[in-house]
Design a binder for these strands. Sequence first.
RNA 1: GCGCCCGUAGCUCAACCGGAUAGAGCAUCGGCCUUCUAAGCCGGUGGUUGCAGGUUCAAGUCCUGCCGGGCGUGCCA
Length: 578
Amino acid sequence: MENCKEYLSRVLGAALRGCCGLADAEPNVIGASRPEFGDYQANGVMAAAGRCGRKPRELATAVVAALADREGWIASAEVAGPGFINIRLDDRALLARGNEALAQPRALIPPARKRQKVVVDHSSPNLAKEMHVGHIRGTVIGDCLSRVFERLGHEVTRQNHVGDWGTQFGMLIAHLRGRGGDSGALEAELADLEGFYRDAKNRFDSEPEFAARARASVVKLQSGDPEYLAAWRRFIDESLRHCQRIYQRLDVGLTLADLDAESRYNDDLAGIIRELDEKGLLRESEGARCVFPPEFHGKDGEPLPVIVQKSDGGYLYSTTDLAAVKLRAFELKADRSLYVVDARQSLHFQQVFAVARMAGMAPETLSLEHIAYGTIMGQDGKPYKTRTGDAVKLADLLDEAVARALTLVTGKNPGLEEGERRRIAETVGIAAVKYADLSKNRMSDYVFDWATMLSFEGNTAPYLLYACTRIKSLLRRSGDGGRSGGMARLAAPEERALLLKALQLPEVVDVVARECYPNLLCNYLFELAGAFMRFYESCPILTAEAETRDSRLALARLAEEALEQGLGLLGIGTLERM
RNA sequence: GCGCCCGUAGCUCAACCGGAUAGAGCAUCGGCCUUCUAAGCCGGUGGUUGCAGGUUCAAGUCCUGCCGGGCGUGCCA
């Protein structure tokens, strides 16, 4: 089923091309910039008029006259200003589409025309440390995008490219091995990954003898020494348990099956070097083996190398990523490979992508996309730290969010039994934290602030959840759940605005899938919830006479569908009451 | 030095391949609970979109140059 924007683009596009004779003219249909202009507007006529040498308003008039609105969606199309075409949709067409969506809720977001294989690399924590607030971005953005692609019918492979093979593991193993027998105490110690890492790092920096053992441990580990592998495995397992607890609490879809750890590629790295060499791309420079993609330059215009093997023979992040590109290209046969990774690694990915193309490790048909996001900053404009200099642990942030939500729900709704209040607080607190991140443009650097992160008013998850609970309460009280009939009339402007907004969900989802900006979905859902709130405040429902009541209940149900499906794509579940 | 990102209301952020009078939230001021959940709704205050040019019917958006900030820039990831 076409959405409104697609239909208008098609119909207006055909008329425009017919009138101006330009085969590639686009009507450029967008939502109306002001409600008094109508529902949608076409901005493309003026550009087309410029190209074919006609007067914009005259061409716009011709386009309106040539419209072939076969499905009868358009109530009016008017030329305005310098050559805009303002469109108002027909109320009966809107009602018909709304009722269709009610009868078949999945149809609210139709599948994409072309099914693709999409790899979403996200979260990717370093297993040497505990997850901190910085990890929420990639984790939650990647999860949202994965859900969007899945919902559109694409075949999604989530990958969690955890860092489990770097040099710091030698340090940790050396520290771990020094602890010896008492496994109970050790487990307790490992539960505080951050503290364990800090202790190991301190020893590494202050005890030369320890540092030497740490380096030796890396060599032992990477050469496959069983004892060192076992120690490593123990550490990794504990760290992964910690990650999974966070993922479950965040309701993020990543599981152990999605692991695509660095260590997995250990045996492929020599082959990557060989392949680059065979293709004549490898050059030795200052003792390291490098590839020089022509488009990168360093100081003084010197060619900038992508080092793939260190002078001591060790491999690098780039090498591993090349192996990962190959897997995604040739084994997973991906159409799109997304890397939801901090923007600071943007040069790294440009380089990896360039080398992969040069070496034929990524076919032209594979779209490699770095879905970059900004850094989390403190109030002082520098990367966020607590007083002790550590990053805030993600687990602590979530605890705080849930605690604050519990205080609030207890104050608002003391009558609820404690178990339910706790469940509500868990959902509301976690949702607030996720939404605070998802609702910001991912490219912006992000100022971490407890107050912003844990706000429950305004453009926040609780606002959206509250709209849902109001709808659910209505449906509970209505007895028949509003399922008796469909929408029959649009008496108040708030009804029409809500219906139109609800029907626009698929338009937003398409953009999110294309551009990978979850905040666009958040913006939309906030507007949708606002449209419902205004409808709710101005239109009596349960007390209205029968026909109006049923029609409004059906509209409320449609709003709930759109809200719930949209929130679902953000990875936020709804509540019966709060 | 070079490269990437950014600069919008007191604060945090929007603004859909350039579109009509730049929008929200927080804060602040005022109104709305004997009717469907006030985590809400309605209204007010608040802007030379960092500065200066340019491109065109139209610029927060594109181009150039400054100013300010963040990040990156050969053997970490």
